[in-house]
Design a protein around this nucleic acid. Sequence first.
DNA 1: CCATTTATGTTGCAAAACGCAACCTAGTTG
DNA 2: CAACTAGGTTGCGTTTTGCAACATAAATGG
Lengths: 133, 133
Amino acid sequence: MGKRSGCAINHALEIFGDRWSLLIVRDMAQKGHTAFSQFRTMSEGIASNILSDRLARLEAAGVISRQPDAQDGRRTRYLLTESGRDLIPVLLDIMAWSFRHDPSVNVSPAMAARIARDRDGLAAEIRAKLDGQ
Amino acid sequence: MGKRSGCAINHALEIFGDRWSLLIVRDMAQKGHTAFSQFRTMSEGIASNILSDRLARLEAAGVISRQPDAQDGRRTRYLLTESGRDLIPVLLDIMAWSFRHDPSVNVSPAMAARIARDRDGLAAEIRAKLDGQ
DNA sequence: CCATTTATGTTGCAAAACGCAACCTAGTTG
DNA sequence: CAACTAGGTTGCGTTTTGCAACATAAATGG
């Protein structure tokens, strides 16, 4: 796993520069998903082998953590680490960018306005919901 | 090119959800690169066929524009569109995230502090430099 | 308790994307 | 007009992806 360069953008791309990793983080932040089977239901349709691989990579990168469920031994709980939660503002900015340049995207104008006006406040709200997990 | 979903994050990933596209945008924003041969010198080492493909995709997505050079008919100038320039704040946030969670990355603490304190002002400065092109 | 179902994966295989080196063409320069 | 430069394309082997089937451990239901 030799890194290609010390550039900060490249560093980030080596963690989530693919079509799936950020969608997993999105589902964790937006929907509070924590289970393998929950990620499999995402509308983009991720294959189980790819999901398995991406969860392992995100864990290796320190963006998520994996813990066995105490109540149900079959389950594994995937949670955003501090580093993963810190991606929430980036996710919001990407959503706002997509909306500005293609309003046909599934973002309400109200949400877009909220991100523009108070991104960090919104990020804090999303973060707070995850604290219960 | 059927889209996988209307999600704003997915929309963005269909444009730059790979290991190279954002590095091209980075070189345009950070270094003012406009030529094929300039992008080929990036330290990550992009192959010419991949570069050719990514420039075509970014143009198709409206993030960059391509124009023949008036002075030298061999040259093509690649420039960030408004949509491309609007990615600058996102790039800065990604840089800051990388720095916070891996300080070994090539970002000076001063730059990281500047992004934290005045991201939009910094983005405006970078934008202003591109206006000469 | 034993059969069934659920949750989390792994395996095999075909298709697509990537990476490298060589090659090509139009336009420019000496 | 010969050599060089810029921006690609082509071939080909390697890697990653996507799909479907299968495996395994743990829970649940009768």
